[in-house]
Design a binder for these strands. Structure first.
Lengths: 231, 231
DNA sequence: TCTCAAGCAAGAGCAGTGCTCTCGTTTCGT
DNA sequence: ACGAAACGAGAGCACTGCTCTTGCTTGAGA
């Protein structure tokens, strides 16, 4: 089973974790661009080549950090949803959005790693798609709560979008109306547009009261997916 | 004056342009991360140190490319606005959005350079703020056309956003109602959320018919800023 | 219990990077 | 015509990711 497999196996996972930890520290401090394998090894008191026993390449180490980042922001979103269970859907929605934004502002380099320019040879490994979808799933779940009985009135879909909307709904959430699925994906990406502009500095000298601005925008996104102000 | 200032001055601007050109080519081909001063110099038949007579550092070269990219996407937006002059505001708005998206899809690396993770030591030089605001100005201009007479009904601003909205409108467009200024900034960032998710691959295996999806989303953004379907 | 393959850390080394400094040469303003 | 400024070439520094070889250590099977 997964019991204690000798000292060697235990050391391996410990060292692997230590490498990932130190790499995470350097990522948070300096950003992905300045993350150096040699510096990580140096800080851990080993030589750089030894590090390749644990991660085949720098990109693999980065991938591990990417997965961690997706998991962290996903967990933040899930926690916000859990803490607001039972409240009005629109309030839950804005709470989830706020949690995502708060995590991003607190971890700008990790955020940039996952929602900024794709840094490596541009191939998202299979391991990332699960963690990457956690935030989206929370948004879907939050909206689903308001649509269990009868779908709130959403604007009708334009003709050309009907097939895509049907496919999207079938893939994402077969129990939701296609128009809602489309709105959810839109709102999902637009949420990260708001967050990215703030984290990446595009609001510099433009938006001052970021909290109020974001709160209003997140609320509006929630209304876009059919969540009513009072329900 | 700015006449032909000897062969040397002419050569200088020519070589500077050649460097920027070659760097742009490498940027488009491989992305900002793999843009190498030495490779640029090699391709131009000079030695790497000679290149420092024209650009003090790699970051300065990148900054020049950033300015070019902002100008290119700004020009695309302006052209779309010009070509649709006289049409319905909502149609002009979606045309501008489509132009931005088309440019981004055609120039993913340039797009990532300006709207992805901030690459260098994270200090946006003064020269970039002008070109960087061109797209935003086009969006403002497009919306202004629909609000000259009387402001279309926008949802009332939440209490806490009033001061920020007033300041924002005063800064951006004093002739526009504060609620519209807020909506414009929101829509601006959300537009790039949609584009970034597509260019950066977050719609992979999720959105198939990107054209239809984006068209509907852009249209909805236009309605958010008060542009009516028929007007 | 002994043995031997596998796991491991260390070091040297390769190819590449940004950047600096020096050294002759060319150009241009005075 | 002279001298200062601009210029290109080259060597070199410190750094990077990564590979290969060399021994040592561990642990599982005979």
């Amino acid at each position: 089973m997964t019991t204690v497999r000798g000292a060697r196996a235990r050391a391996r996972i410990e060292i692997t974790a230590a490498i990932k930890d130190e790499a995470g520290t350097q990522l948070a401090a300096e950003g992905a661009a300045k993350l150096s394998l040699r510096a990580v090894a140096r800080e851990l008191g080993m030589v750089s080549s030894a590090l390749y026993r644990y991660f085949p390449s720098r990109d693999d180490l980065l991938t591990a950090l990417i997965v961690d980042a997706y998991d962290a922001v996903g967990a933040a979103a899930e926690q916000a949803a859990a803490e607001t269970a039972g409240q009005r859907p629109l309030d839950r929605w804005t709470a989830v959005c706020r949690a995502v934004r708060a995590w991003a502002v607190d971890h700008p380099h990790e955020y940039a790693l996952i929602y900024g320019s794709p840094v490596p040879g541009y191939t998202a490994p299979e391991d990332t798609i699960g963690p990457a979808s956690r935030v989206g799933l929370v948004l879907i779940e939050t909206a689903r709560g308001a649509h269990t009985g009868e779908g709130v009135a959403l604007p009708p879909l334009p003709e050309g979008l009907r097939p895509e909307a049907a496919r999207l709904a079938a893939d994402l959430a077969p129990d939701l109306p296609p128009a809602l699925a489309v709105m959810l994906v839109s709102a999902w990406s637009q949420l990260f547009g708001l967050v990215s502009f703030e984290v990446f500095g595009h609001f510099h000298n433009i938006v001052e009261d970021r909290d109020a601005f974001f709160a209003a925008a997140a609320r509006r996104l929630g209304q876009d997916v059919g969540l009513l102000p009072r329900g």
